[in-house]
Amino acid sequence: MTDPLALGPHDFGALYRRLRGAAGAGPTPRGALDRITPELVRRAAGEVRTGRTVSMAAPVETRQEPDCPDPARHWLTAPAPPESPADGLHFAMDRLAMNMHSNADSHLDALCHVIWEGTLYGGTPPSTLTPSGATALSVDLARDGIVGRGVLLDIPGLHGVPWLEPGVQVTTEDLVAAEAAQNVRVEPGDLLFVRVGHRRRRRAMGPWDVARERAGLHPTAMEFLAEREVAVLGCDSNSDAAPSTIPGVAFPIHVLAVHAMGIHLLDYLQFEDLTPLCAERGHWSFLCVVAPLRVPGATGSPVNPIAVL
């Protein structure tokens, strides 16, 4: 039986060209972030009702797990063990080293992260990626922060399940149905967050090899984002389902979002604190603040997105 969700290379190529065309005649300086105007930020501030703040980041993973073979390394550098500080002033200090694009840690993908068919977003040459960092399209494009209206679409909630099983793909129909069920509409310049329940499954069943199996979006769902002119896409997986349905393209959502559409991605977030609060309020939009680290030339950054309710 033919898989109705499968796309061939020709179909994917046509989808890529449509989405690149929908993004505009040429690349904008900050990609889709340019859709977030000062007026939209002011309007997003009106979403605040209670002033409560909620993190959408997972704790940094420092243990080696099936989904995190290269965990972050965090250690105390002072005082040096087993020394006990003497009288007077002392400072406790520590150091953190991490893979920016871990399959366990919450992070932002910059527009220089995806190389497709020999170019970066907007036809930027890969020669801009140097050993000392990217000289174009780096995380520095978001140095002033990403602030706007966030919208959370709860796809497992739509289907009455705690999470989507690995391999399940979220379609445009799912996104539209979630809007209707939650009485919310994704609008131009929004930061769209799609919950697949990845973190809840990880908590309940333990880590697994997400490089092989994970829930995510179907490539054609990106047409929904193009139509609504979304500025940022975030997910509690990395937005791409695995295994991919596109032969030879392991991360089609990354190719379409970052390379074709200039959309920054927020990967491996967690919505388990935010979802019940939105459900309780019956209100699924909020002011959102994302502040990536200012690491010159970086292809991404760890992030702690904050929803302000």
Rank of each mutant, 00 (worst) to 15 (best):
L96D: 00
I155V: 15
E179S: 13
A6I: 03
G150R: 09
R149N: 06
V196P: 01
Q182G: 08
E229R: 15
F224I: 03
H74C: 13
G167M: 05
E227P: 03
A257V: 11
L277F: 03
V308T: 13
W75I: 05
G8K: 12
D34N: 13
R228Q: 08
L158V: 05
E227F: 06
I306M: 10
T245D: 00
L287D: 01
V54I: 15
P305F: 01
R52P: 01
T62A: 13
P156Q: 11
M222A: 06
Q64H: 11
G46D: 12
G150E: 02
H254M: 11
V151D: 01
G160D: 02
R203M: 09
S138M: 03
R20T: 12
P71Q: 06
P296T: 07
R95V: 07
E83K: 07
V194N: 05
A32H: 05
N103G: 05
R214E: 06
P81V: 14
P131F: 06
F224Y: 15
L152M: 09
R201Y: 01
T2I: 12
P71I: 09
L152D: 04
L129I: 15
A32C: 02
R49M: 05
H107N: 13
E117R: 15
D11C: 02
G300Q: 08
G197Q: 02
L33K: 11
G13P: 01
A250P: 02
E173L: 12
A291W: 04
W208S: 07
V230F: 09
R73S: 10
T62W: 00
V176Y: 01
A136S: 14
S106V: 03
G46L: 14
A97R: 14
A25I: 04
P219C: 09
P126W: 09
L191R: 02
A23M: 07
E280P: 00
P27M: 08
A226T: 02
L265C: 11
R49Q: 13
M56F: 10
A57K: 03
R35K: 09
V184N: 07
A92T: 14
G282P: 07
R95C: 04
T172N: 04
E223I: 04
P247R: 13
V54T: 15
P162E: 10
P219A: 15
A80D: 03
V232Y: 02
E187V: 03
G31L: 06
R143F: 01
R73D: 05
V184H: 06
P305M: 08
P207D: 14
I36P: 00
M100K: 05
D190M: 07
F91D: 06
A136H: 10
P131H: 11
E229Q: 15
Y16K: 02
H254G: 15
L129M: 08
A142D: 02
T171F: 02
L309S: 06
T124M: 09
A279N: 09
A110I: 11
V176A: 14
T220P: 00
H264G: 00
E187Y: 00
E187H: 07
I36C: 02
A215E: 10
P276T: 11
A104Y: 03
V295E: 03
D174C: 11
G160E: 04
P29C: 08
P302M: 12
A25W: 05
E65C: 09
A104K: 04
A14N: 10
V184A: 10
I115T: 15
D209G: 00
L277P: 02
T124V: 15
R30W: 00
H259G: 05
P292G: 06
P9T: 14
